[in-house]
Write a protein that binds this DNA or RNA. Structure first.
Lengths: 136, 136, 136, 136
DNA sequence: GTGGTCTAGACCACT
DNA sequence: GTGGTCTAGACCACT
């Protein structure tokens, strides 16, 4: 799992780590049951405090993306509550509001939407039974 | 313009104000050329300091949603740069990654996407005459 | 003299008026001895308060671009003190510092410099005796 | 990094701080990756409020001269967009218009231009090896 | 009457 | 120890 952190960037490091993990899961680089790097290892790799990584992992746990245990460390284990889905819809609403408010053309929004989902597509194809006829 | 602030919430107040304004523009409650409430008035309404509102308005100005002047106050005046659009796409990517990572079904994501855009749809439909042959 | 003001823009109106007049003088649209529009006329044209125009004209007078008198109104009459020249050099220094700090290539800075001066060139050619050999 | 502020001057303090930092970057006193003084430290040095310094740093961040993070503080990190370059050209145009309008001789303008750039020259000469054949 | 600048200072977030 | 958020409030600039 490739991870790029922008130390000294504007976003808090723990947030960046969280985002990278979420993107990796969506991209299929990290799959259900996979282990995330041990906290101290990841911290060492980037020369950051292990507390920072710990905070990121704890956030991922809270959000229902991973499980933490002393035995197996951090493991991808997604789950979602209704509240999660609602919170997610609220985020989507805000992102789309920005686009609409800025007057980005509907076609361009649609294109961006499809492009991103296509990028993450493989995932459903891996989980789903390999059916035929999937053209385009 | 309805606005709800969650004092003591996780999100900074100025960010909440910013979000509410963006949503209002997208929803068409605030339209190009409309005035936002004066800084001090909005502050009084919510019992917060005018600096907080000022920061929100300044952020909206930076992001290209409004214009500020001592004469006319805060006025909706959207503009966008290429960098804006790129930053927006990155936000969309992250939001969709969350959905995919959580395994929300594609159909449900699509439904949420369409529902939100439908909510903001009127914008174009109000401004444009409801007729065919929309040339220039 | 064409003048465009951005009412509701970020820059103070009096500053915009001042800038437009300076640009007009540099471009040769306004020449030594020419009259600027009467204060109240200009104010009426843009629907702004005559105090605002008055402030702009007074600033232009202070800066040594025009003369004001009850008889003849505002007349282009440039003059400069050593202090003016120093102040100008300081402005130039700051503008160039921005370019250098941002890492704009020297060639590009030079090009912008020459382009702007070329735009204002006619002026010297009008004042100077029409000598031959001025190619490029 | 030498800095001189004119308290009680016409220019806002935060703007003066911003200008001094830009000049320092152009002069090479501050270089890519260098740290600016911590907000509160600089404020104490000049006996002004840290909010004022904060505003200056935030402006420098917006303009693409520095980066801010809680971890590393304020670090010189220049970047520019096309809009930046356009805005810069407009500033240059106005400064040169002043000179032309005042009838400052072209030779004197050229001299001032070259003198300022010479002052900032070292930047490239320090970083690059003083040799011919500078390829990539 | 509008937003802008600045001070003073409490408390928080991130590392 | 760094910057960030927020309140409180004085005084200023522009129109």
């Amino acid at each position: 799992m490739r991870m790029e952190l922008d130390l000294g960037g504007e976003q808090p490091l723990y947030q960046q780590i969280r985002d990278q993990v979420v993107l990796a899961i969506a991209a299929g680089t990290l799959r259900e049951g996979d282990n995330l790097p041990p906290i101290r290892e990841l911290a060492a790799e980037f020369g950051i405090h292990f507390h920072t990584v710990n905070k990121a992992y704890d956030l991922l746990r809270q959000e229902g993306f991973i499980r933490l245990s002393r035995k197996s460390g951090a493991v991808v284990h997604t789950s979602r509550s209704e509240a999660d889905t609602e919170a997610w819809q609220h985020k989507l609403r805000l992102v789309l509001a920005e686009a609409v408010a800025k007057g980005i053309a509907r076609a361009q929004v649609d294109a961006a939407y499809r492009a991103v989902l296509a990028e993450f597509e493989h995932r459903s194809s891996e989980d789903a039974p390999p059916q035929s006829g999937r053209h385009a």
